[in-house]
Simulated assay, not measured.
Amino acid sequence: MEDIFISYASEDRERARLFAEAFAARGWSVWWDRHIVPGEAFDTRIEQALDAARCVVVLWSGASVASEWVRNEAAVGAERGVLVPAMIAAVKLPLEFRRKQTADLSDWQGDAAHAGFESLCAGVSRVLGEAGQRVAPAASRGAALPVKRMEGRRIAWMALLGAGVLLLGALGLRWLLHDGGDVGPRPPGPGRPVETVVAAEASLAARIAGTYRGDVMADSKGSSRSDVSVTVTAIDGRSVRIASDYPRIPVVDVSLTRAGEQVLSADGDTALSVDLARQPPQLIYSPRGELSFSGVRR
Rank of each mutant, 00 (worst) to 15 (best):
R248K: 09
L256S: 07
I208N: 02
S244C: 10
S220T: 13
S224M: 11
D275N: 15
G214L: 09
D227L: 08
I284H: 14
P247C: 02
V296I: 10
P250Q: 01
I208R: 02
S265V: 05
S294A: 15
D215I: 06
P280L: 12
L276D: 08
F293E: 08
T231R: 15
D269G: 02
M217A: 07
V216H: 06
A209I: 01
R288C: 05
D245A: 10
R248W: 01
D269K: 10
L272C: 03
K221N: 14
S244P: 09
T231D: 07
G210M: 01
V274W: 11
D219G: 03
A243P: 00
A271M: 12
L291W: 03
S223A: 15
V232W: 03
A266C: 00
R207T: 08
P247F: 02
T233G: 00
P247W: 01
S244R: 11
L283P: 00
D253M: 00
R278I: 10
A209H: 07
F293S: 11
V251E: 15
S265D: 09
V274I: 12
V232D: 00
R298Q: 14
V228Y: 07
S239K: 10
D227N: 14
T231G: 04
L291P: 06
D269V: 10
D253C: 01
S265P: 08
P281E: 12
S244T: 09
G222Y: 13
S239T: 05
R241K: 08
R248Y: 00
I249G: 09
S239H: 08
S220I: 02
S244L: 10
P287I: 06
A234M: 05
V251I: 12
V216S: 11
D267H: 12
V251T: 15
R241F: 01
S226Y: 04
P280M: 11
S255D: 14
S226Q: 13
M217E: 08
D215N: 15
T270N: 06
G237T: 04
P281G: 09
R213H: 13
V263P: 01
S223K: 12
V240Q: 03
T233D: 11
A206R: 15
T257C: 12
P281N: 09
Q279W: 09
L276C: 09
L264F: 01
R297H: 06
R241P: 00
Q262L: 15
I284Q: 09
R278A: 14
R248C: 03
L283H: 03
R241T: 05
Q282V: 13
R278C: 02
A243Q: 10
D219Q: 10
V263C: 04
Y212I: 03
D227V: 11
V232Q: 01
L291D: 08
A243W: 00
D253L: 00
I208W: 08
A234Q: 05
T257V: 05
D236K: 02
S292E: 12
T211V: 13
G295S: 05
Q279N: 14
M217Y: 09
G214Q: 07
A205D: 06
V296L: 09
E261W: 13
L276S: 09
L256R: 10
I208H: 05
S220D: 01
S292C: 05
D236F: 02
A206C: 01
D215P: 05
T270Y: 04
V254M: 03
A271I: 04
S224A: 15
S226H: 07
P287F: 06
S229M: 07
S223P: 01
